[in-house]
Computed example of a mutant assay.
Amino acid sequence: MGDQIMHKVVVITGASSGAGRATTFELAAHGAALVLASRNEAVLQELAAECREIGSEVLVVQTDVTDHSAMRRLAERAFEWKGRIDVWVNNAGVLAAGTFEEMPWEAHQKVINTNLLGYMSGAYAVLPYFKRQGAGTLINNISIGGYVAVPFGGAYTASKFALRGFFESLKGELTDWPDIHVVDLFPAFLDTPGIQHAGNYTGKVLKPSPPVYDPKIVAHSVRDAILRPASTRYPGGASLLFKIGHSLAPEWMTKITGLLMKGYFRIAGPAEKTDGNLFRSVDFSMSTNGNSRPRLTPHTKRILRIGLLTAGVVGLGIYLLSGRNARTSS
């Protein structure tokens, strides 16, 4: 496995913390030549030093993914460094939580610019190099938010739904390039510092919704996508179950998630409102894990499966009943 990744040139955006940091360590252990990008250069340099100790070559390029010129420079520097780009991992993202019309409009814009346009900018920057080489793998860490809406995270949800559509469109364009692969990852909630870095306009302490997975599941999926570039992957079993549940009973899923969020806010502790890392990088909790609880336990897995199966059965029943009523009325 390591021999197939060794010396591959891999660009990772949002590498300084969370899933990006976990992916960096995973690929460094396999000898990849890493190009690390984020807004926080000091943290990237520390991360690069750790990877070099492992034995990986590393290039650090300070990059704001909302700056398209910076993204093009990132691709240029990566290509100039080794004469090729084998893999590009779109990972940088932000979250802003709050009632839609009460949040600053600029916060919504920043989420869209980072999560959606940042990924599109990455694809735009790297595809000319992939086509010049005739090969390459573009990996997008989208999240299950691409299928299941997050109430009080409207811009986040919009960006993730749009990413899924955009990359499906791009895959259609690339059918004449069999060695250029686009791989979309849809993990469930991750134990990363992202929730601590979020723009929080709720006035309440934010916590990720269970089940919560270790970000290493994304790192392992990136590794596997490099080795076997399937079009979509669902790191952690819960994300695929969420997708199926939403497909069978979308209205129920939306109502349930809304009720859960509102119920949480009623009991959550108070917190000061903050822009978090939306408009500038932060210097705290720049780690792989955010130490959130609970993790996904066997008991939680059973409850999740039962709940989603129930939602699916109800949704299927409603679908069949509505079809029967429609035929009867006609």
Score class of each variant (00 low, 15 high):
R293Y: 04
I303C: 12
S292T: 06
I306E: 03
L248V: 13
M286K: 03
M286E: 10
D283N: 14
L308H: 08
G269L: 05
S287Y: 03
K262M: 13
L260G: 05
L308V: 15
R266L: 15
P270M: 02
E272P: 04
R280V: 03
I303M: 14
T274I: 06
P294G: 01
R305V: 15
F284E: 07
L278M: 06
T254H: 10
A268E: 12
H299I: 14
D283L: 09
M253R: 03
H246Q: 05
G307P: 02
L278F: 08
T288L: 07
Y264F: 12
F265R: 03
I303N: 05
K255V: 00
S287G: 02
P294W: 01
G263E: 04
R280H: 15
G258Q: 06
N289L: 10
D275N: 12
K243N: 01
N277G: 14
P294N: 02
N289T: 15
K243S: 06
M286L: 15
I244Q: 01
G290D: 07
T297C: 10
S287H: 06
F265V: 01
N291S: 11
G263A: 05
S292Q: 14
M253S: 12
D275W: 06
F284I: 10
I303D: 14
R280L: 09
L260T: 08
L278G: 05
L248I: 10
K262V: 01
R266E: 12
T297D: 09
E272G: 15
I267S: 08
T288E: 15
K301E: 09
F279E: 04
I256H: 08
G263V: 01
N291V: 04
H246L: 00
M286H: 00
P250K: 01
R305S: 13
K255H: 07
L296W: 09
I256D: 13
T274N: 13
P298E: 02
P250H: 05
P250F: 00
T254Q: 09
T257D: 11
S292K: 02
R280Q: 15
F265S: 04
R305L: 15
M253W: 00
S292I: 00
R302F: 08
K243I: 05
L248P: 11
R293F: 05
D275Y: 10
I306C: 07
G307V: 12
V282A: 03
L296F: 14
N277P: 01
T300D: 14
K301R: 10
K273P: 13
G276V: 07
G245N: 08
F284M: 01
G258C: 00
K273T: 15
R266T: 07
G263D: 04
S287L: 11
V282I: 13
S285Q: 03
I256N: 04
G290A: 10
F265G: 09
G258V: 00
L278W: 10
L278Y: 09
